[in-house]
Amino acid sequence: MIENLLFELEMAAPQVILGLVNGAFYALLSLGLAIIFGMLNVINFAHGAQFMMGAFVAWMLLAWAGIPYWGALILAPLLVGAFGVLIERTMIARLYKLDHLYGLLLTFGLALIIEGIFRNGFGSSGLPYAPPAAFNALNIDIPIMFLPGYRVWVVIASVLVCLATWLVIEKTKIGAYLRAATERPELVQAFGVNVPRMMTLTYGAGVALAAFAGVLAAPIYSVNPAMGANFIITVFAVVVIGGMGSIMGSVVTGFGLGLIEGLARVFYPEASATVVFVIMAIVLLTRPAGLFGRG
């Protein structure tokens, strides 16, 4: 009986941990989407492409400039975030007065263009990016499982960044402006706050979060133009389940659904690819605003 349980645990633990690692990416990506949607009312379909750009910039920094992982972890989000600022200023900002759908179509088009450019330049087979050896110190090697240190780091980094983002939004003056402008941008601007600039910086920050996730992902998945597209569909389901625009909701739901996917892989593997979408359908039918959404 006990042996049976141990065996089950041995089977389950790696999948659960893998689920947690996926959840770490879901959380980071849906957090960026939630911030962007809350402030700009734009569903940023280019999020997956920007995640992929983060991974590619990390690869380029290493291959072309010799800048290692830690440098890339800081630089890639800054560079891709700056690219986001440029996109917001030159294109997205023109669409705020129109229906949400236009922002979605624009960013969807941008995603296709960006992915196309990278496929042209780098092919679709993927480029290797080795994690720094230092992470081996974090390896978890216990009887029921072996977990590479780098994946431990991914979970820790994601939790820390999500927590820091939450703190900035909930506990600082900048966060108060952001929350207020999410509710009534017009009034916040009439108080003397430059709301258009806030929107630009918010988009840049959301894109930088995607790129940060991309750098984290580079050593785990091969760096390839489709890596964002693979993730983003699930991430949108996460956002819908958590509640569009809810910060806490996207983080909790991201990790939660990663875990559920992992568990599904153990107990009913056939459902592992669809469980998130089944949950999404149920949530949409019973709580259309999402688990953490308002109203």
């Binding site: 601007q189 009439a190 108080f191 706050v193 430059n194």
Partner: peptide, 8 residues
């Protein structure tokens, strides 16, 4: 002027 500049 834009409304934030009017406020200022």
């Amino acid at each position: 002027l834009r409304s934030d500049l009017i406020a200022r």
